[in-house]
């Protein structure tokens, strides 16, 4: 496994041009607890980097480091090849790194267009009469959603009335519209049914095709493998390897995710005693 890791890393640095975002030995401690250690990978334009790991593997901490919520304790973040530090989520956003959180950062009771522009509302008028440009906001929302192939009947309907997949797509369309170059998706498919998950994977591919670097965080190798170009596997805050697509089959990925031997043991344990079931 160490060999594979090294091979993966070398490939990451020998590809043409500097990656959009590169992680070098990133680590994060909370007091004496080491949440992340020695994480390295690269996110390239027009590629999907999948971060896979079980619960507690450090996926959420990694996202928060990338999104500027946490400062890394060790290691370096490189944006277009030069080191950066994010002090606040706003810094990461300004650098073009948009994060779509699991809870989607959307307000269920608010209209789609209000959610779409939340925190970055377009304004018109001057002085005390500066106001939220609702007409533009509605039009842009409808246009951007249509460009992602999402047909919204009415941008005035509350986000709470949308399905999970539709909400994900609104969140992705929002990030794309606001000039994201790197799109971080936190478990976008985990709460969805098979069909809805497929819809979201299609939006991920679409964002990739528009030239974004996508970081796709998931614990489902079946969702990761079809769209992923790179796979970073995490276990208890440590990297289990950083692979390019050709280096892994879906079966290998699944096995590594499931903990391989552990799963075989579990299967044996559950089967006993033979003949009783």
């Amino acid at each position: 496994m160490t060999g594979a890791t090294r091979a993966g890393r070398e490939r990451g640095t020998t590809d043409s041009g500097a990656p959009l975002l590169e992680l070098r030995g990133i680590g994060k401690d909370f007091g004496s607890v080491i949440a992340l250690d020695g994480i390295s990978t690269a996110v390239r334009a027009g590629e999907v980097t999948c971060v896979l790991g079980d619960n507690g593997a450090g996926k959420s901490t990694l996202i928060k480091v990338l999104a500027g919520v946490h400062r890394p304790t060790r290691g370096q973040l490189l944006l277009d090849g030069s080191p950066v530090e994010f002090g606040a989520p706003r810094d990461a956003l300004d650098a073009g790194i948009a994060t779509v959180y699991q809870d989607l950062a959307m307000i269920p009771l608010m209209a789609i267009w209000r959610n779409f522009f939340l925190g970055s509302e377009p304004t018109t008028g001057w002085g005390p009469f500066r106001r939220f440009d609702a007409t533009t906001a509605r039009d842009v929302t409808r246009r951007e959603l249509a460009a992602m192939g999402i047909d919204i009947r009415d941008p005035d309907q509350p986000v709470g009335t949308l399905s999970g997949g539709e909400r994900q797509s609104v969140a992705i369309a929002r990030a794309v519209h606001f000039g994201a170059r790197v799109l971080i998706l936190d478990e976008p498919t985990s709460a969805l049914g098979v069909k809805q998950a497929g819809v979201v994977l299609r939006y991920i591919a679409q964002a990739r095709d528009r030239g974004l670097g996508v970081v796709f965080i998931t614990h489902n190798p079946h969702h990761a493998h079809p769209v992923g170009d790179r796979f970073l596997l995490l276990n208890r805050g440590r990297s289990m390897g950083d692979f390019a697509k050709g280096e892994l089959t879906r079966e290998q990925l699944t096995e590594m995710m499931a903990g391989g031997d552990e799963l075989t043991e579990l299967a044996e344990e559950l089967e006993r005693p033979p003949g009783d079931g």
């Binding site: 989520p89 706003r90 809870d103 950062a105 269920p108 608010m110």
Partner: peptide, 18 residues
């Protein structure tokens, strides 16, 4: 817009820069 958002979900609205 920020008033509705803060009341609707404070953490979520802070995450998008409100």
């Amino acid at each position: 817009n920020w008033v509705f958002a803060t009341g609707g979900d404070e953490v979520a609205s802070r995450n998008v820069g409100v």
